[in-house]
Deep mutational scan, measured.
Amino acid sequence: QVNIAPGSLDKALNQYAAHSGFTLSVDASLTRGKQSNGLHGDYDVESGLQQLLDGSGLQVKPLGNNSWTLEP
C-alpha cells in the first residue's frame, strides 16, 4: 500500500522509488517545479508512476532490470 502526499513531483517520485524498490533515472530539469497529486493505494510500478506523472506532460519508459526513466 502506497501513501504519498501531494506536492513536489521530485519528492513524490523519490518516495515511490524507495517504497517500491525500483531505480528511477531522471534528468532533474524534467521534473523541476512540477507538482504531483500524490498516490494512495496498491499499484504496480508502471501504473503508480503514470499516476504520479498525471498532468506533468512526462511519460514513463522502462529501461529493464527494474529501472525506469522519464521523457517528455
Rank of each mutant, 00 (worst) to 15 (best):
Q1G: 12
Q1V: 13
Q1C: 15
V2C: 11
V2G: 04
V2H: 07
V2A: 08
V2N: 03
V2Q: 05
V2L: 09
N3Y: 14
I4M: 01
I4N: 00
A5K: 10
A5E: 11
P6M: 06
P6W: 05
P6R: 08
G7W: 00
G7A: 07
G7I: 04
G7Y: 00
G7R: 01
S8W: 12
S8E: 10
S8L: 10
L9G: 02
L9I: 02
D10A: 12
D10T: 10
D10R: 10
D10H: 12
K11P: 02
A12V: 15
A12M: 03
A12E: 02
A12N: 04
L13P: 00
L13H: 02
N14G: 10
Q15I: 10
Q15R: 06
Y16Q: 02
Y16M: 04
Y16G: 03
Y16H: 06
A17F: 05
A17Y: 02
A17P: 00
H19D: 12
H19Q: 15
S20T: 10
S20P: 06
G21T: 00
G21N: 09
G21M: 05
F22D: 05
L24W: 06
L24Q: 05
L24N: 04
S25G: 05
S25N: 13
S25K: 11
S25F: 15
V26S: 05
V26T: 05
V26D: 06
D27H: 07
D27C: 13
D27M: 06
D27K: 06
D27Q: 06
A28V: 10
A28T: 11
S29Q: 10
S29M: 10
S29A: 13
L30H: 05
L30C: 10
L30V: 07
L30K: 00
L30I: 08
T31R: 00
T31E: 01
T31D: 03
T31M: 08
R32D: 10
R32C: 14
R32G: 07
G33L: 06
G33V: 01
G33M: 05
G33Q: 05
G33I: 01
K34Q: 06
Q35F: 14
S36C: 09
S36A: 06
S36P: 01
S36H: 05
N37P: 14
N37R: 13
N37Y: 09
G38M: 02
G38N: 02
L39F: 01
L39K: 01
L39G: 01
L39Y: 03
L39M: 06
L39N: 00
H40P: 02
G41I: 03
G41A: 02
G41E: 01
G41P: 00
G41Q: 02
D42I: 15
D42T: 14
D42S: 13
Y43F: 12
Y43Q: 03
D44M: 06
D44Y: 04
D44L: 06
V45T: 08
E46R: 12
E46P: 10
S47K: 11
S47A: 12
S47M: 10
G48Y: 05
G48R: 02
G48W: 07
Q50F: 08
Q50K: 15
Q51V: 13
L52V: 03
L52W: 02
L53Q: 02
D54H: 14
D54L: 15
D54Q: 15
D54Y: 14
G55N: 06
S56I: 07
S56R: 00
S56Y: 05
G57N: 08
G57T: 02
L58W: 03
L58H: 00
L58A: 02
Q59W: 10
Q59S: 11
Q59I: 14
V60H: 09
V60M: 11
V60G: 09
K61R: 12
K61I: 12
K61V: 14
K61A: 06
K61Y: 08
P62L: 10
P62W: 15
P62R: 15
L63M: 11
L63E: 06
L63D: 07
G64L: 04
G64K: 02
G64H: 03
G64C: 07
G64N: 06
N65Y: 08
N65P: 13
N65L: 08
N65A: 09
N65R: 07
N65I: 08
N66D: 08
N66P: 05
S67Y: 10
S67M: 13
W68A: 04
T69P: 04
L70Y: 03
E71I: 14
E71A: 09
E71D: 06
E71G: 06
E71L: 12
P72A: 11
P72K: 09
